[in-house]
C-alpha cells in the first residue's frame, strides 16, 4: 500500500469527498473552458433580444438564465468567468500556504532549540494578525491585484500547517529510524526531506483543501469589501457590486448565483479535507 494509492482509495470511499471531487472537477472544467461556455462576454452591456433595450436587472429568463446586473451584464457569464479567479487564487494560495507551512514546520521541529523558538514566535505573531484588516491595509498600500492577494494569504495562513507539522515532526525525530538514518551517515537535509517528509505528507495534503477554502473565502471577503482586482470578475466582486448599487434588495438573482458558487466550492474542498483526516491520523480510521 503506497501513500498515493491509499489516499485515492480513501477519497473514493467517502461519498461526500466524492461529491466534493466532482464539484471541484466541474469548476475546473468551467474555468478552463470559460470562453466557450459563457454565453456572453462578462463585461458586455447586453440588449434584451425582445425589446431591444438595455437588459438592466432582468430576472432569470430564457435569454438570461441567471438574470442580469444593473449594467445589463449577464450574471451566468460572470459566474463562469469568476470561477477562474476563485480557482486561481484558491489553489495558488493553497500551494504557497502548504509549501511555507510544511518547510517551516519541518525545520522548526527538526532543529529545535533557538531555530524552533524563533520560527514559532513568528507563527505566534502571524496568528495575532487578523486577516481581513491586514489584507485591506496591504492592498491599500500596494494596489488591488490578485497576485498581492495570493501573497497575503500565503504570508499569513502558513501559520496553521507550520504549527501542526512542527508538532508532528517533534515526535517523529525521536523515532529510532531517524537515529538509524543518522548512524548511517544521512545528512540533516536527507533526514528531513527523504525520511521525514513522506511521514508528514498526509498532514501536508490535509492542508491543501483547507487552504483552498480559506483563500477563496479571503478573496471573496476582500472583493466584497471593495478591494478586489477591478480588472477581473470575481464572485466576491459581484456580491460587492450588488450590495454597493443597492440592487441586492430587488435583484436576488444577482447575489444568489455567486453566493451559491462560493458556498459550493468551499463546502466541496472541506468535504475532501474531511476525507483526508483519517489518512493523516490513522488512529481515527474506521475499519
Amino acid at each position: 500500500m503506497s501513500t498515493s494509492s491509499s489516499i485515492v482509495r480513501e477519497l473514493l470511499r467517502d461519498r461526500l469527498a466524492l461529491f466534493g471531487l466532482v464539484v471541484v472537477a466541474l469548476f475546473f472544467f468551467v474555468a478552463i473552458f470559460a470562453p466557450a461556455l459563457a454565453p456572453h462576454d462578462p463585461m458586455e452591456v447586453l440588449k434584451h433580444p425582445e425589446t431591444g433595450k438595455a437588459a438592466i436587472l432582468q430576472p432569470p429568463s430564457r435569454y438570461f438564465p441567471f438574470g442580469t446586473t444593473n449594467m445589463a451584464r449577464d450574471v451566468l457569464s460572470q459566474v463562469i468567468y469568476g470561477s477562474r479567479i476563485a480557482l486561481l487564487v484558491g489553489f495558488t494560495a493553497a500551494f504557497v500556504v502548504t509549501f511555507i507551512g510544511a518547510n517551516v514546520g519541518l525545520i522548526a521541529g527538526f532543529y529545535g532549540g533557538w531555530v524552533d523558538t524563533i520560527l514559532m514566535r513568528i507563527v505566534d505573531i502571524a496568528y495575532a494578525i487578523p486577516f481581513v484588516p491586514f489584507a485591506i491595509l496591504l492592498i491599500a498600500l500596494l494596489r488591488p491585484s490578485i497576485v498581492y492577494l495570493i501573497m497575503i494569504v500565503g504570508l499569513l495562513m502558513w501559520r496553521a500547517p507550520a504549527r501542526v507539522i512542527r508538532a508532528q515532526v517533534l515526535s517523529l525525530v525521536q523515532r529510532p529510524y531517524v537515529k538509524a538514518a543518522r548512524v548511517t551517515g544521512a545528512s540533516n537535509l536527507r533526514i528531513m526531506y527523504v525520511h521525514l517528509m513522506p511521514n508528514i505528507l498526509p498532514i501536508v495534503l490535509l492542508y491543501i483543501p483547507l487552504s483552498v477554502g480559506w483563500a477563496i473565502m479571503a478573496e471573496a471577503s476582500v472583493s466584497f469589501l471593495g478591494f478586489g482586482d477591478p480588472r477581473m470578475v470575481s464572485w466576491g466582486g459581484m456580491l460587492q457590486s450588488a450590495f454597493a448599487t443597492g440592487a441586492m434588495r430587488v435583484a436576488w438573482w444577482w447575489t444568489l448565483a455567486p453566493g451559491i458558487a462560493i458556498v459550493l466550492i468551499v463546502i466541496s474542498v472541506y468535504f475532501i479535507n474531511r476525507a483526508f483526516e483519517p489518512i493523516a491520523s490513522p488512529s481515527i480510521r474506521k475499519e
Binding site: R175, P176, Y177, K179, A180, V183, T184, H195, P198
Partner: peptide, 29 residues
C-alpha cells in the same frame, strides 16, 4: 559502525518499502 534498535515497530520508516529501507545506507555511501 551501525545500530540495531529495540522497537521493531518504530525502527523502520513506515513509508519506506523493505528494499528502500535496506538500500538507503548504500545510497548515502
Amino acid at each position: 559502525v551501525q545500530v540495531i534498535f529495540q522497537d521493531p515497530y518504530a525502527t523502520l520508516n513506515q513509508r519506506f518499502t523493505i528494499y528502500r529501507t535496506v538500500v538507503e545506507p548504500l545510497i548515502i555511501h
